[in-house]
């Protein structure tokens, strides 16, 4: 088993996937805590579809996928945030409109030129083979920046997540921190999308947070637990995909699903234990 893991890391593309994937998993799980609690889970999903549309456009125009997708997805993040806050179109409907709209446009663009080929398949379901060394460097820098910003603004992010009106009233610029969250989420999604696939990347945001909320009772423990769960699930998923030649993105999501149910079971277990203790006492 251990030998297989060392063998796995001897492939340069696996080592690259490990570095980028771990960083992206950490970013996504940290941002996820705030997004899930703010009821913004679907924003991640919407953004990844916008990302797919942009990647398709980048393929058609022969542009660098990462450089083209980042600004467009950021712009979409701002738009979705505004939609959720105040708009004629209800937040969830707005997200669905934008997300499906860009998916359709992306598919149209591709079919006009190349037709559905392996590139498109990779964008939708992810592939670890698509990362070049330059991509890894850029991803590592951006992901580290996301992590640093999250740690520096941790207390503000808590305040804005828990109670936006109080934060505003006590002089915190809540709009700024919401935008910050949107930008960080956009960057994370663009970075993780090619490995995880446009259809699966948002699960990296939602699953770890939802999992750790089963058991953890403070914001800090939820944050730490969700980062650990995310990293562990990523490593498990990556190893499983290497050992069983399974698709990477899907393996990681399956690992996350397993973690979610394990936490649910643990929660049920602690409840039953408490109840028996109470009735015994």
């Amino acid at each position: 088993m251990l030998k297989a893991l060392f063998e796995m890391l001897s492939y340069p593309f696996m080592a690259r996937a490990l570095v980028v994937g771990l960083l992206v998993s950490l970013c996504a799980s940290l941002l996820g805590v705030s997004l899930v609690l703010k009821r913004y889970s679907m924003i991640g999903d919407g953004l990844s579809h916008v990302g797919f549309g942009t990647l398709a456009a980048a393929t058609v125009f022969n542009a660098s996928p990462l450089l083209m997708a980042a600004p467009v997805v950021m712009a979409a993040a701002f738009l979705l945030l505004r939609l959720s806050e105040n708009s004629q179109v209800r937040g969830d409907a707005g997200i669905a409109l934008i997300s499906n709209g860009s998916l359709a446009v992306g598919i149209m663009l591709i079919s006009l030129t190349t037709g559905i080929n392996i590139d498109v398949y990779n964008y939708m379901f992810g592939s670890i083979l698509t990362m070049s060394a330059a991509d890894v460097a850029l991803s590592a820098v951006l992901a580290s920046a996301v992590l640093a910003v999250f740690v520096l603004f941790y207390n503000k992010i808590f305040a804005v997540t828990f109670d936006e009106s109080f934060a505003r009233a006590s002089g915190t610029n809540a709009g700024l921190y919401n935008s910050l969250l949107a930008v960080l989420t956009a960057v994370t999604i663009v970075l993780g999308m090619r490995m995880m696939g446009a259809l699966l990347i948002s699960s990296l945001i939602i699953f770890p947070a939802a999992t750790s909320m089963r058991l953890c009772k403070t914001f800090k423990s939820v944050t730490i637990c969700s980062a650990s769960v995310s990293a562990a699930c990523f490593l498990t998923g990556l190893a499983a995909s290497f050992l069983f030649a399974a698709p990477t993105g899907a393996s990681i999501v399956v690992a996350n699903i397993a973690a979610f149910f394990i936490f649910c079971a643990l929660k049920a277990g602690t409840r039953i234990a408490r109840r028996t203790k109470q009735s015994g006492a």
């Binding site: 609690l37 703010k38 009821r39 207390n155 503000k156 808590f158 305040a159 828990f162 109670d163 109080f166 934060a167 006590s170 002089g171 915190t172 909320m213 953890c216 009772k217 403070t218 914001f219 800090k220 423990s221 939820v222």
Partner: peptide, 19 residues
């Protein structure tokens, strides 16, 4: 959102100092 928010009472009170 606050009804199922995982936060300790102290974390909530401390956030009052952010201003």
């Amino acid at each position: 959102a606050q009804k199922d928010f995982p936060a300790s009472a102290r974390e909530v009170v401390l956030s009052g100092r952010l201003g």
